[in-house]
Nucleic acid binder design. Structure first.
Lengths: 235, 235
DNA sequence: CCTCAACTCATTGTATACAATCTTGCGTGC
DNA sequence: GCACGCAAGATTGTATACAATGAGTTGAGG
C-alpha cells in the first residue's frame, strides 16, 4: 500500500510546480492579498522563463486566487465583502451534502488519511505555524470532498476553499479563535461511523462557526491604504 | 439605454477572442468531442501565434471544454458517463435555487433580455440551426444565473452549462425532442411575476426533462472508435 | 511652490526560435 | 511473413527577443 497522499499528486511540469508553490504561499498567508506578482521577479525566483510564470498565473487567476489586470500585471486577489459572503453561501450550499456523501462512502483508508490531516494540523499549531495550520485545514475540506467521490463538486469546493483562505486573511476577527481541529475531529467521527446525517449537520455548523469568526459586516472605509483602494477597487 | 447584451461582453485581447471563438464552435457542435486541436493549425486559422493559442486552450481546459494531455496536445473533451451524471447532479443542486433568486431580483430590463433570448432561440430553430439554438439555450441558463446576482455560483453554472453542451453532443437520445424553449418560456413567466417558488420548481423539472432526454445508462461498449477509447479512457 | 506635461523606464503582450517528447514509417533480423 | 527496433518527422514544452502599453520622473511654466 502506497504512503497516504496528504497533498494532491505531485505536479509534473514546471507550470504546475510554480502554480502549486504560489498557491501554497498564498494559502499559508505568506503573501498578502494585493501583493504584486511581477513576472520577471517570479521567473527569477523559480528559475523558469516568463512563459511558465504566465501560464501559472493564468491558472491561479482562473480560480480567482490572483487577479490579472491587462497591461498592469497579476496581484494576489482581494475578495470584496460581497464576494466573501458569496463564497461562504456557496460553501454552505455544497459542503454539507458533500460531507454526508463522504460519510456514506469513506473507507478505512480514507479515515486514516483524514486523521493524518488532523495530526499535521495539530503539529503545525504546536509549532506556531498558523499559516500552515490554516492551509492544512483547507486541504481537510478538500479531502472530504474527494472521499465523497464527486469530482465536479469537489473542484468547485477547491476553488471556494482557495478563496476562503484569502477571505480569512482579509476579514478574520482576530479576537476569534478559529480553532478548526475540534470541528474536524467531530466530523471524522461521524464519517467513520458512516453517519451521513450527523456529518452533514456537523459540516453545516462548522461553516456557520467559520463565518462568525469573520467580520463580513459592511464598513464605510476599508482598513487598507488609500492607494491600494484606488488602484484596485474591484471593478 | 445601451443595447441588450445578449452575449457576454466582447473580449478585449487576442487570447479571449480565440477562447470565445473556440468555445462557441464547441457549444454549437461544430467541433465534435475528441477532435484534436493542434496549436499550429489553430494559430494559422486565427492568425495569431502559438502563445495566444496555448493560453486560450489552457483557459478552455480549466472549464473542461478541452482536455490537454502532456506532450500530446489538446482535444475537445469527451465527458464520461460518470462525469455527465455528476454535471447534471450539480446543476440540479445549484440551478433551481438560482432561478428562485432570479425571480426575486429580476428587473423589467432583465425580463426583456430573457425574452430576447427566447426569440433568438426560436429564430435559430426555424432556420434549422440546431447548434446555435442549443448554444443559445445554454446562454439562457447563464443569464438566469446572472440575474440572480450571485457571481460565484454563476461561474460554476457557466462551467456546468459548457460541459452540458458536450454531454448533449455525446449522449443525446435522438428520438427525444429536447425542445427547451417551452420550458424557458414558462420560466420567464414565473420570473416576471417574481414567483420564486414556482421558478425554482420549473427549473427543477426542466433539468429533469433535460436529463431524461439523455441516455446516461451504463453501456458495455461505447459507440466511439476503439482508438479513441484507448488513447483517452479518462484516467 | 505647485501643476501639468512630456519623456524615460519598467513591465506586460505577442511572436519566434530552440529543445524535448511522441508518433510514424521503414528496415533489419528472426 | 511478422515482430521488433531505430530513425525521421511532427508536435508540444520552454526560453528568448521584440512590440506595446502603463507608471514614474523630471522639467518648465504659471
Amino acid at each position: 500500500m502506497p504512503p497516504l497522499p496528504i497533498s494532491p499528486p505531485k505536479p509534473k511540469d514546471a507550470t504546475e510546480k510554480v502554480a502549486h508553490a504560489l498557491a501554497l504561499a498564498i494559502h499559508e498567508h505568506r503573501i498578502a492579498p494585493g501583493t504584486k506578482l511581477g513576472e520577471d521577479e517570479l521567473g527569477e525566483i523559480y528559475d523558469v522563463s516568463r512563459t511558465v510564470i504566465r501560464a501559472a498565473l493564468q491558472s491561479l487567476a482562473h480560480i480567482q486566487l490572483v487577479e490579472i489586470q491587462r497591461n498592469k500585471g497579476a496581484f494576489v486577489a482581494q475578495p470584496s465583502l460581497r464576494e466573501a459572503r458569496e463564497v461562504f453561501e456557496a460553501r454552505a450550499l455544497l459542503e454539507p451534502r458533500t460531507a454526508g456523501s463522504a460519510a456514506a462512502r469513506a473507507t478505512p483508508r480514507d479515515i486514516a488519511i483524514l486523521k493524518e490531516h488532523i495530526a499535521q494540523e495539530h503539529a503545525a499549531m504546536d509549532a506556531g505555524d498558523h499559516g500552515r495550520a490554516l492551509s492544512l485545514s483547507g486541504v481537510f475540506h478538500i479531502e472530504v470532498a474527494r472521499i465523497a467521490d464527486q469530482d465536479t463538486i469537489r473542484q468547485f469546493i477547491e476553488t471556494l476553499i482557495a478563496r476562503s483562505s484569502l477571505i480569512i486573511a482579509l476579514y478574520w476577527r482576530r479576537e476569534s479563535a478559529l480553532c478548526e481541529s475540534h470541528a474536524h475531529h467531530a466530523l471524522i467521527d461521524a464519517i467513520a461511523k458512516a453517519d451521513a446525517q450527523n456529518a452533514e449537520e456537523l459540516m453545516r455548523s462548522h461553516l456557520v462557526d467559520l463565518n462568525s469568526a469573520l467580520d463580513l459586516r459592511d464598513r464605510p472605509t476599508q482598513s487598507r491604504s488609500l492607494k491600494e483602494l484606488l488602484q484596485d477597487p474591484h471593478p
